[in-house]
Simulated scan of single mutants.
Amino acid sequence: MIDFRSDTVTKPCAKMREIMFNAPLGDDVYGDDPSVNALEAFAAQCHGFASALFCSSGTQANLLALMAHCERGDEYICGQNAHNYKFEGGGAAVLGSIQPQPIENENDGSLCFEKIRAAIKLNDFHFANTRLLSLENTIGGKVLPLSYLAQAREFTHSHQLALHLDGARVYNAAVALEVDITEITKHFDSVSICLSKGLGAPVGSLLLGSVELINKARRWRKVLGGGMRQAGMLAAAGHYALEHNVTRLIDDHSNARYLAQRLNEIEGFHVDLTKDTTNMVYAHVSDTIDIHSLAQQLTVKGVLFSPNKTLRLVTHLGVNRADIELFIAELTAALHV
């Protein structure tokens, strides 16, 4: 199958599977898994943090960050489109007793500092305590500029707020900006990074932060049922992904631009080619096209995508130029049946 639904559908390569099979193991809840320990030490060092925690998912990593930064009855500010507000089941409120305060994202995915300032609560017992600003990079495939991240750091310092990054696809941002990952992560008090999207590991995310924050997050991970025992097989895959699958993300970005160009040639589909969204293509679909019927037809032909009037197609290590050409050919044929 050619799968454009998300970069979460990637599968480990043969070399990654071999490393997983041969990974030295121990009980991670006791701190005895050498492969988990190696991943956490490596990740902390290469991202510029004192400590790291291997988590089962990006959702878990973000929730642990929120629960480590905030206490019961505290509040975090984020965007209306933030994944840790909109797409993670309300975990901060449900499990952390933390109030989200979403504000509208700007067109480039950023948050307006004046709107953030207006959302910060007074030191008054009528209000939740505003403790944290959470940003996302990339967001909807869009890259936040380094200058904006520096402004966010200065803003949070001046307002005594912590700063968290949902960096599920932060390596896509770093590759697009052509900078070392630390040029992004250095601005934040904590960062979550997904290993199982474009980086190609089968499972897992990282949470990065200070020793104190990670120790707190580790306790909450256990409380939430996240102790994974002999997790080294998964950690070894994530370690391999960080060492071998970063620079190839540029291929995904190039393939996304090519896909956007080819899709724009088909009547009834429109992609704004002036917007660079790394490995994501957003196409407006004409009302004359039954996109749900089209998705069913292409599934039979071995092509998967999530039907919507604004169609999101995601490139990843499981999609190459030949796959894109086949998709365009099958899409064109289905439209002319």
Rank of each mutant, 00 (worst) to 15 (best):
221 R>T: 08
245 N>M: 03
76 Y>V: 00
76 Y>A: 01
69 H>C: 12
218 R>W: 04
161 L>M: 02
257 R>G: 03
285 V>D: 00
335 L>S: 04
165 L>D: 10
41 A>C: 12
31 G>C: 01
21 F>Q: 07
82 A>F: 03
61 A>T: 04
48 G>H: 04
295 A>G: 12
98 I>Y: 03
269 F>C: 04
199 L>V: 12
259 L>E: 05
324 I>N: 09
245 N>L: 05
115 K>Y: 06
323 D>K: 10
267 E>Q: 08
54 F>V: 07
53 L>F: 04
129 N>K: 15
315 T>I: 05
147 S>N: 13
22 N>Q: 12
303 V>S: 14
58 G>L: 08
135 L>F: 00
301 K>E: 08
157 H>P: 11
99 Q>G: 11
54 F>T: 03
12 P>C: 08
85 Y>H: 14
263 L>R: 07
212 E>R: 02
135 L>Y: 01
208 L>C: 02
131 R>F: 01
331 L>W: 01
35 S>G: 06
88 E>A: 06
251 D>M: 11
59 T>M: 15
296 Q>Y: 12
275 K>M: 08
247 T>M: 12
160 Q>E: 08
117 R>H: 14
209 G>H: 05
18 E>M: 05
143 V>N: 07
124 D>I: 07
16 M>S: 02
320 N>P: 04
197 K>M: 14
289 I>P: 13
85 Y>N: 08
134 S>K: 02
71 E>C: 06
159 H>K: 04
172 N>W: 14
173 A>H: 02
122 L>Q: 15
212 E>Y: 03
287 D>L: 07
265 E>H: 00
208 L>V: 00
300 V>N: 15
206 L>E: 01
158 S>D: 08
292 H>I: 13
13 C>K: 12
310 T>D: 13
258 Y>Q: 11
133 L>R: 02
166 D>R: 08
256 A>L: 04
74 D>Y: 06
243 E>C: 01
52 A>Y: 01
269 F>Q: 03
183 E>I: 00
187 H>Y: 10
47 H>C: 13
337 V>H: 11
189 D>K: 05
164 H>D: 02
334 A>L: 06
75 E>L: 09
126 H>S: 13
48 G>W: 05
218 R>F: 01
280 M>P: 03
51 S>V: 00
149 L>T: 09
258 Y>K: 13
282 Y>H: 12
78 C>E: 07
11 K>G: 10
271 V>T: 09
80 Q>R: 15
115 K>A: 05
269 F>Y: 07
130 T>N: 00
197 K>Q: 15
4 F>I: 09
137 N>Y: 08
169 R>H: 15
196 S>D: 09
106 E>S: 11
293 S>F: 13
132 L>D: 04
285 V>R: 03
225 G>C: 07
294 L>M: 09
270 H>A: 03
256 A>S: 06
75 E>V: 05
281 V>S: 08
154 E>N: 13
140 G>V: 00
63 L>C: 06
193 I>E: 12
123 N>E: 15
7 D>K: 09
55 C>E: 02
55 C>R: 03
43 A>N: 11
184 I>R: 02
2 I>N: 13
77 I>T: 02
289 I>K: 12
202 P>H: 10
91 G>L: 10
244 H>K: 09
40 E>H: 10
265 E>P: 07
178 E>K: 15
310 T>K: 12
331 L>T: 02
150 A>S: 12
287 D>T: 14
199 L>Q: 11
212 E>Q: 08
224 L>M: 04
39 L>D: 11
60 Q>H: 12
330 E>Q: 15
4 F>M: 14
